[in-house]
Amino acid sequence: MTSSQLVKMRLELRRGVLVLAVLGLLKQPHYGYSLRKQLQDGGIDIDEGTLYPLVRRLAEQGLLDSEWRQAEGRERRYYQLSSSGAELLSQLTEEWQQLNGALAFLLGQVTDENTEEN
């Protein structure tokens, strides 16, 4: 597999998970930069060019509420989960846990088969 293929596959794999991570973090209000910092601290590195448009799209879909606030002499737009966003998050979390369990089982099987072959 070439490095460009790996980059593309990783992007595809992370795309859906990223929404879940952002919705999960926005149970608390965050502005763009603080959200990115929180994701980075949690081990998810995402570039600004992807994160900020994603947050806006989620807000446009009614999953996030937003408001402009003045803080430290500068205005910032804070985002937080809306009620429909919270509902979606709980459904997605359940889905993720099922998927994660299934994948852990499947990937475990593959690892076992590889070990036996060796």
Partner: peptide
């Protein structure tokens, strides 16, 4: 407006 706020934070 939002982009500028984010860049300034950074």
């Amino acid at each position: 407006r939002e982009l500028k706020a984010n860049i300034c934070d950074q």
